[in-house]
Design a protein around this nucleic acid. Structure first.
Length: 493
DNA sequence: AAAAAAC
């Protein structure tokens, strides 16, 4: 299957080729013909599957027949409206539109809040066929009469479940009321709750359901790991993992649950000498854009983020996502870690789990339908206090990762992404009673890619039943940082 | 529970 076979025009194919793509992804192969046929779509796809190009390309193709090279603004009414839940996402979708519309006479712009309206008004005055927008600012323009939606032929709602969460539905309904009934509508959502279905019913006509992966499925290219750690020493553990050089984490997106915690953690990491910045909704749009750009370009290694960055954001080949705090809903876990392991690349999702967060971890494992392997990092444990850590640091040098006595090579790279797949569904956690008291080296099964799924958890207690306070945490005899997740193929900067 | 989104 090639893009040409999907019936895209030469101008679009040229842009696709220049962007470096040859074959459509499964969702693209499924969605593009349906959209070209003029049907409404209710689409579900796991993150990083090429969904954006999957609707951008056929949208451009559908707009082409009446595209006008005229410079008269009157010849360029708004014909397509794409709505996204965050400003950064809107910018990203717009970049995709710009990329693929390079050789066709269609104009596009992106409108969102937090920035001056004047430039957006001037853009809209030029005459723009494709508008990518966040809901609030779009309605602002509607009220100012700087945008007319009466000629809209195509409506696309991206990350619709996110819009539900964020209480956008009244805004969305207002926007829907401004659009012609005669139009093609596409709705994309990672989850299909009853509420989403209700929205879909009112917005779509005889929609075709396109679902590429199991609902709430996580990419098989992502390695998951949990470090049980007390909340008191989490930030030290994170700094250690980030500072471990080639043994530690490389470019990393760190998620926290609050805006305040986000700013505070970024500041702490900077004090530890780590190039980091924060992105959250209380920052100015200028700061948000600057932080994201710096992270995408590699100018900074670590971006600490709230869930503003949890969905849809595409950082090219991002190797690591860390959950510094466990998100309140298990769906958010799926979205957060979906920032890595995209476009066929490998990624690792590392979660720092305090005992009081174990119930959230359990909910996540129930949703993703497998248990996440756990590793205790030497010196850190679910009951470790700041004093414990200080004592530990006074008596130990940070241990270096190395090949184990029994031949476990932490640095061995994966032979291929395929090798990862059977291993991506780890064995269930051994029960407390059957857990051996010590590490049973003889019984260990080491995957071809060097990942040991049969290793017991480093803690002597089940994560659900943390140790009594004051007990010294059990040290893993196999201290290691998390670079092994990516087989040493990745290097810290 | 917090996050996001308009001024």
């Amino acid at each position: 299957m090639s893009f040409a076979e999907l019936g895209l025009s030469p101008e679009l194919l040229r842009a696709v080729t220049e962007a470096g793509y040859t074959e459509p992804t499964p969702i693209q192969a499924q969605a593009i013909p349906v959209i070209l046929a003029g049907k409404d779509i209710m689409g579900g796809a796991q993150t990083g599957t090429g969904k954006t190009a999957g609707f951008t390309l056929p949208l451009l193709q559908r707009l082409l027949p009446y595209a006008s090279a005229s410079t008269s603004p009157a010849k360029h009414p708004v014909r397509a409206l794409i709505i996204a839940p965050t400003r950064e996402l809107a910018v990203q979708v717009h970049q995709s539109v710009v990329t693929y519309s390079k050789y066709v006479p269609l104009r596009s712009t992106c409108i969102y809040g937090g920035v001056d309206m004047k430039a957006q008004v001037a853009e809209l005055k030029r005459g723009i066929e494709i508008v990518v927008a966040t809901p609030g600012r779009l309605l602002d323009h509607v009220e100012q009469k700087t945008i007319l939606l009466q000629n809209v032929e195509f409506l696309i709602l991206d990350e619709a479940d996110r819009m539900l969460d964020m209480g956008f539905i009244p805004d969305i309904r207002r926007i829907l009321n401004l659009l012609p009934a005669q139009r093609q509508s596409l709705l994309f959502s990672a989850t299909f709750s009853d509420e989403i279905k209700k929205l879909a019913d009112s917005m779509l006509r005889a929609p075709q359901l396109i679902e590429v992966a199991r609902r709430n499925a996580v990419s098989e290219n992502i390695r998951h790991l949990v470090h049980p750690v007390s909340s008191h020493v989490k930030r030290d553990l994170l700094a250690d993992l980030l500072n471990a050089g080639a043994d530690g984490l490389g470019q990393t997106l760190v998620f926290v649950n609050t805006k305040f915690g986000c700013a505070r953690l970024a500041l702490h990491l900077k004090k530890e000498g780590i190039s980091a910045d924060a992105i959250h909704g209380d920052k100015s749009q200028l700061e948000r854009s600057a932080a994201l750009e710096a992270f995408k370009s590699g100018a900074i290694r670590v971006l600490v983020a709230t869930d503003v960055a949890a969905r849809g954001l595409d950082v090219d080949d991002l190797p690591y996502v860390v959950n510094f705090e466990i998100p309140g809903t298990p769906e958010d876990y799926v979205h957060r870690i979906g920032r890595t392991g995209r476009a066929g690349k490998l990624g690792a999702a590392v979660s720092l789990v305090a005992p009081e967060e174990n119930y959230k971890l359990a909910a996540i494992e129930k949703l993703i339908k497998f248990k996440i392997p756990q590793e205790l990092v030497t010196g850190y444990g679910p009951e470790t206090s700041v004093d414990d850590l200080r004592r530990f640091r006074n008596t130990h040098n940070r241990p270096k990762r190395q090949v184990d006595a029994d031949g476990f090579d932490f640095n061995r790279p994966y032979a291929s992404a395929d090798e990862l797949k059977p291993a991506a569904r780890p064995q269930s956690r051994p029960s407390q009673s059957s857990r051996p008291p010590a590490r049973p080296a003889a019984k260990r099964q080491i995957a071809a890619d060097g990942f040991d799924f049969s290793a017991p958890y480093a803690s002597n207690k089940a994560p659900e039943a943390p140790k009594a306070a004051g007990e010294t945490p059990t040290e893993s005899k196999r201290p290691r940082t998390t670079a092994f997740l990516l087989g040493g193929a990745r290097k810290a900067d």
